[in-house]
């Protein structure tokens, strides 16, 4: 007997590879989207800081814009720098 698989359609869920489940700013899951967005994933991506903390991009941008003086990570108070890995 020979079994030929013509097509295997699997079901998978995608997930951000991050060290936390929820965004530290909006407390929403990373796999969801920030409060301003409707669609997760490509439309609401994550960004990582050099301090290794990550947030929804829209969340951290908002945060950074609201900081007049120093642009710090809201978690560790280090200066915020995007980690472009």
């Amino acid at each position: 007997m020979k079994v030929i698989i013509k097509n295997w359609t699997g079901v998978a869920t995608w997930k951000w590879i991050a060290n936390d489940d929820n965004c530290g700013i909006c407390r929403m899951p990373f796999d969801g989207c920030c409060p301003d967005c409707k669609l997760p994933g490509d439309d609401c991506p994550l960004v990582w800081g050099e301090c290794s903390h990550c947030f929804h991009m829209h969340c951290i941008m908002k945060w950074l814009q609201s900081q007049q003086v120093n642009q710090q990570c809201p978690m560790c108070r280090q200066e915020w720098k995007f980690n472009n890995k």
Partner: peptide, 13 residues
């Protein structure tokens, strides 16, 4: 084996 998949956003399902 030709694989295709449905990639779901778990939070919304």
């Amino acid at each position: 084996i030709p694989i295709s998949s449905m990639i779901l956003s778990a939070q919304f399902w």
